[in-house]
Structure formats: C-alpha cells, structure tokens
Simulated scan of single mutants.
Amino acid sequence: MSLTDKAITRIRELIQSGELPPGAKLPPEQQLAADLGLSRNLMREAVKALVVSRVLEIRRGDGTYVTSLEPHLLLDGLGTAVEMLRGETLLQLTEVRRLFEPVATGLAATRIGAAQLAEVRRHLDAMRAARDDAELLTEHDAAFHRAVLAATGNETLVSLLEGISSSTLRARVWRGLVDEDASGLTLTEHETIYAALADRDAALAEAAALVHVSSTERWLRDHLGAD
C-alpha cells in the first residue's frame, strides 16, 4: 500500500468511526496532518482522491467537508467506468444486470404506488408511440426502468443498477432492434412487466424482467459474435 493510500485509509477510518460524520467539516489541513501523523503533501493527495470519489467536497473559502455519503454520490463514478467496457466485459455486465434487476422488479411490484405506476405507464406509452425511433426508444426505455427501480424505495439498489446500465449499450441494442424490425417483441416484454406491476404480482414481475434482460443478453451475444 502506498503512503497516499495509507493516508486515504486514515481519513476513511475517521469517517467510518463517526468521528467525522456526513456533513462534518474537516480540521485545518495542518492540524489534521499532525493528528494523523502525516505530511501535509500526503494529506493534500489523500483529500484530492477522496474528493474525486465524492467522499469529501471542497467549499472554496470555507474548507473541506464530508459529503452526505448518499449512494447516488458514492456510486456516481460507476456509470463512467461502465461506459468504457468493451467486448466480453459487456456480456459480463449484462449477466450482472440479469442477477439483480429481476429481483428489484419483483420488489417494486410489492411497493409501487399509484403515481409511480402512472410514471411507468407514461414511458411505456411513449415507447409504443416511438417504436421506430431508436433515439426516443432509448430515452423512454431508460426512464421506464428508472421508474421501476425507484418504486423499490431502495436508493442503494437504484444507484447500483443505474450505474451498471450502460446508455451506450442500451442505444446500440435499440438501434439494432429497430433496424431488424424486431422492436415489437421487446415492447411486449415491457408491457408484461408493467402488467405484473399493475397487478402487484411480485413473482410475475420478477419473471417478466428476467425474460426481458435475458433476451437483451441473447441479442447482445449474437451480435457481438458477429462483429
């Protein structure tokens, strides 16, 4: 472990122990460095790294603070990393989605409220209207799944699944489906998910989501192999 990594670990320990809770202001750089037995240069490097990872934030003219540490902040960088994946790793990403998203959809069926269900329906209707427009399909498909995940009420789950949902990959799949005149089947899969949510049927919602993600994975396997 490098000296900078050790410095990062020391600051994280202060946060994890509750000595520096969310929203807390860090002591002045010189004082904190002395308290932790670190040089000021190491302290600066550690703070920079923790700012990049959204653990700390620098408020100009005020000081350095611990962020809210909410999942959407801490997992924000995941989406950027996911967009860099290529080839076989894209299939691995889809496998991860297949493991998590159906269960999340089943959970959503037990918790979804009327307003949330209406939001899912709105994006489903928009997808039906745009069945030959890959750009609009991509936009409303993402919003459809985001609305379903939001209904779970689990912010960590939402942030994690949003992070592993590559917008580039989503657009590629929809362009391919439209070009092949095969978007109708995928729309039907979304309709089945919506119907299960409307019935508050967790088992059916989970099964419908599994069918949907699996068909996307199958399409991707076929087309990656052809590239």
Results as ranks from 00 to 15, higher is better:
residue 56 L to R: 07
residue 28 P to A: 07
residue 5 D to Y: 10
residue 75 L to Y: 10
residue 71 P to Y: 08
residue 61 G to W: 13
residue 80 T to Q: 08
residue 20 L to G: 04
residue 40 R to M: 11
residue 53 S to G: 00
residue 37 G to P: 13
residue 66 V to A: 01
residue 32 L to N: 10
residue 54 R to D: 11
residue 50 L to Y: 13
residue 82 V to P: 11
residue 26 L to Q: 11
residue 33 A to S: 13
residue 65 Y to H: 12
residue 81 A to Q: 11
residue 23 G to R: 00
residue 4 T to D: 11
residue 44 R to W: 09
residue 77 G to R: 03
residue 44 R to F: 08
residue 37 G to Y: 10
residue 37 G to N: 04
residue 12 R to I: 02
residue 60 R to Q: 12
residue 74 L to V: 12
residue 55 V to S: 00
residue 20 L to P: 09
residue 28 P to N: 02
residue 75 L to A: 14
residue 58 I to R: 15
residue 44 R to L: 05
residue 31 Q to H: 08
residue 4 T to Y: 06
residue 41 N to D: 14
residue 63 G to C: 10
residue 68 S to F: 01
residue 57 E to A: 05
residue 79 G to C: 09
residue 57 E to P: 03
residue 22 P to S: 02
residue 41 N to K: 13
residue 61 G to K: 03
residue 58 I to Y: 08
residue 65 Y to G: 06
residue 56 L to N: 09
residue 72 H to Y: 09
residue 37 G to I: 12
residue 79 G to A: 09
residue 44 R to T: 15
residue 74 L to W: 07
residue 52 V to I: 11
residue 32 L to I: 12
residue 26 L to C: 12
residue 43 M to C: 08
residue 11 I to A: 05
residue 66 V to C: 05
residue 68 S to P: 03
residue 30 Q to N: 12
residue 15 I to C: 08
residue 25 K to P: 01
